[in-house]
Design a protein around this nucleic acid. Structure first.
Lengths: 214, 214, 214, 214
DNA sequence: GATGAATGAGGGTTCATTCAT
DNA sequence: AATGAATGAACCCTCATTCAT
């Protein structure tokens, strides 16, 4: 999505650009984020931003995608459990997710921004797609869980998937953050959260689920 | 919150005002909703709106409160289960919630709008308070559930409450809407949802929880 | 200037109206004073004010005139020096003026408001007229001073009058207020000013003038 | 105070902008001056003005400061009396002041606008500060006058300074303008005033003072 | 490739005044 | 005589985007 100009930018200039744009779009809902503020903080010309990206929406979309790539990199960077059964896999998956929130709160936050409603039609479509894709992935996992016997076969996944998704997305995140007294990933208190807190929250979530699903 | 002028307005005029304002604020996030659009649709003078409400924020807050009152009315209007134990109570509570979504999607939607982040500081504070109050209520229910033995006593409610809340709020709502292929309460497909769909979603949610919590 | 309706108002109602209107117009420059605020504080209908006065300007003009009448009453109420020569007369006149500022700061302030420039054309004319009338009065005094020998005959009064006026109006008022550390008659510190302060300021002013004029 | 954009504007464009803005803010009290009118007269977009200045207040403050700079330039441009004693110094100082009024009535007027009360809190503070600074400067002059023997030592400067200030500010200005039959620096009649009129007014003022102070 | 001045619609809000009741 | 709802122009300010340099 970024223009060629952006990719050819000197490493440190590009890094700085990303840093500032990320901060702006993580801190505010899309419609309140301001291109003007970004270029002001960077000290570059308005026009330059439009050389790098097609506009506000393009920039936001790229940040969201980049957040996805970085989260994926975090997942593939950590040793994934081999031949794991459903709950081991879920445990690993969501543990990495919570650690990503703690380590990269800005990137985690911008991922959530994409789920917020916005006036922009194209972004609304993106939002719906992201929700569906993430539920789709969960559905595949649960389906395999049914095949391997970790999940009762008679459960109607079209109902169960959104329910479990609610528990493991908003629910788990809030449970994790609550341990630091925070409500938002950008709250500085989040820095005090450690791996044990992530484990505690994930295990509490999976504890609830295991019995419900099996 | 509305000015006396608003309350003394002829019934049909007031009804029409509410209708148009509700549509505007339900359809868009607060910061994108526009006072100008409301008065244009109504064909009244800008100044008139300011005779009725102190401003944009006051109008929005009143709509949110009114949504709360209407939901409460829906709850108290339906026969509440007497001497119900936890899961019966939850079943009744969330069933009414889903029926409210199906019957009054605009009012339900505006209740959700209050949970979205906004640029306005006062509304942000309101939002945090609403989230906490709703979790607080859930905590009381679960605590009584522990006392009556419906919920295992060793569960750490500070973790469980946000988890269950995620499942019964975002999760349940999405499960309910998914049955009509909708993602948002404003989707016209929601009209096709019937009481059985609400029951199915609620029972699926409580089915998962019952085993997890007991 | 007030309509008949206003004059027929019950004594206490009229008194209260004056009190509130005076406070509003004394506290703010004319263009910032607000009719809406006056009726809000009074708890009466907007239309009622328009029954009493033709509008904002009429109300202001009446307040200014009333301030003039009250100051005049204060002057005629106090024993004026008989057969006084110029400086005795000035001393008495400006002493009463400073005492009026200390005793009736709101009425004194509104008199000054009339001297502030405003967007309103009619009020601008009023302002010019008030300045000229007050200089005219001073010119008569000084002329008689020349006749009686208290003021050098060769002085060009068309230059001296505005100079003396500047000293005895803005200058004397600021000197008087400065003794309480105040800059504006509405400053609450003004309440601490006593008759001796007024005398000190007036005598300092006349001390300067006497030598200059004789 | 102006943005870089303004400083980099082509000479004639900037000159025209200043001319129009100056006319607007000189003609009306701050609260009545209108940004909309300025851009309309200029035929530029509203947004452009905000590229030049942070807003209405910033623009006004810059105009006032610029007026100060221009008056200072006029003072330093004229030959200042060397080793002058108090009254020579005052004579030169206020003569230049009156000439500035006659030559640059708009810039002189806007300097006076800064002394008018306004709704804006920041400007009110600026106003009080300007009054105090100008009295402070006068106090220093008079104090040195006491040291050099031009002013009687027993005079209480805290009373004398505001008195003299009234005479030399409002008083002198009005005396000067009165010679052309004008009351306001913006009156076109002011153009007919010549150096002799300024000298006459200043000498009349200092004539009064010299005797009073010595 | 970088610049940054210009745009102009749109935002929310205030206010004195009118006039039907 | 009192009411107060309705008016609507005017206010200042923000913003993403364009385009000539």
């Amino acid at each position: 999505m970024p223009r060629a100009t952006f990719l050819k930018l000197p490493e440190d200039k590009r890094r700085r650009f990303i840093e500032v744009a990320l901060a702006e779009f993580a801190e505010r809902p899309y419609d309140q984020a301001s291109i003007s503020r970004v270029v002001a903080r960077l000290g570059i010309a308005k026009g330059s931003l439009y050389q790098y990206f097609g506009g506000k929406r393009e920039l936001f979309k790229w940040l969201v995608e980049e957040a996805g790539r970085r989260k994926l990199a975090a997942l593939t960077g950590a040793p994934p459990p081999e031949r794991a059964r459903l709950f081991e896999r879920l445990r690993w998956l969501y543990l990495q997710g919570m650690l990503f929130v703690a380590r990269e709160p800005l990137w985690a936050r911008i991922g959530l921004r994409a789920l917020e409603p916005s006036q922009d039609e194209e972004l609304s479509a993106l939002r719906v797609e992201m929700i569906q894709r993430s539920q789709e992935y969960l559905r595949e996992l649960l389906q395999r869980g049914q095949e391997e016997g970790s999940v009762r076969a008679e459960l109607d996944l079209s109902l169960v998937v959104p329910l479990v998704h609610g528990l493991l997305s908003e629910g788990l995140l809030r449970a994790f953050l609550a341990q630091a007294g925070a409500v938002d990933p950008l709250d500085p208190k989040v820095q005090s959260l450690a791996r044990e807190d992530a484990l505690a929250a994930v295990d509490a979530a999976l504890g609830l689920l295991r019995r419900g699903l099996q």
